[in-house]
């Protein structure tokens, strides 16, 4: 007998719990409007600042991404080299394509001045290579200006064969040394 009573009690409690739970879920909805109108200022501000915080965190994350992206783009810009054929200052199709990307960066960064360095391999003679390096830097400058970069954003300098990228007396080294490099002023 006693067992039956207690079982019935548990059953009743469970049912009433369920009813309470469903009521509790609905309760705030029905109560919110009047509360908000009358006395809810304090609680409402808290909710707003929470939303603001969420928004600010999200914004900061995006800004960080942009900064990182800008750094990457700048690094890529500075890492880019334009290569030339022996005793030649003309731009290959590949060089032109690369330079379009360089021009894009410079146009997005109008405040920056770039120094275009012209370099040569060590096969020619030093003085002629100084002049050749100057022509290589000038070729790059001309292309960038034609691609819409401000003239005032570009300075050229020739190092001839004085600053090789790699040491060596073979075609591999020579090819790496016949180049234009970019640095920011």
């Amino acid at each position: 007998m006693k067992k039956n009573i207690s079982l019935g009690l548990v059953l009743v409690m469970m049912m009433s719990l369920m009813v309470f739970a469903s009521c509790a879920k609905k309760a705030p909805e029905s109560e919110e409007t009047p509360m908000g109108i009358t006395t809810g200022t304090g609680e409402g501000a808290e909710a707003e600042s929470e939303a603001e915080r969420q928004r600010r965190i999200a914004e900061e994350e995006i800004a960080e991404d942009r900064a990182r992206q800008a750094e990457e783009e700048k690094a890529k810009f500075l890492d880019t080299k334009i290569y030339f054929a022996f005793d030649d200052s003309s731009l290959s199709a590949e060089a032109r394509e690369t330079l379009l990307a360089q021009a894009r960066w410079l146009k997005e960064n109008r405040g920056r001045t770039v120094v275009v360095e012209g370099h040569c391999d060590n096969r020619g003679t030093e003085e002629y290579n100084l002049a050749l390096g100057s022509r290589r830097a000038q070729s790059v400058k001309d292309f960038l200006v034609n691609a819409g970069v401000e003239l005032s954003q570009i300075v050229t300098i020739s190092y001839g064969e004085e600053k090789p990228a790699v040491r060596g007396n073979n075609e591999e080294a020579w090819a790496k040394n016949r180049r234009a490099e970019f640095r920011l002023r």
Partner: peptide, 12 residues
């Protein structure tokens, strides 16, 4: 005075 007038390098 400018001595050379040619397209391309003039040097040395």
């Amino acid at each position: 005075k400018r001595l050379t007038r040619s397209w391309g390098v003039d040097v040395s």
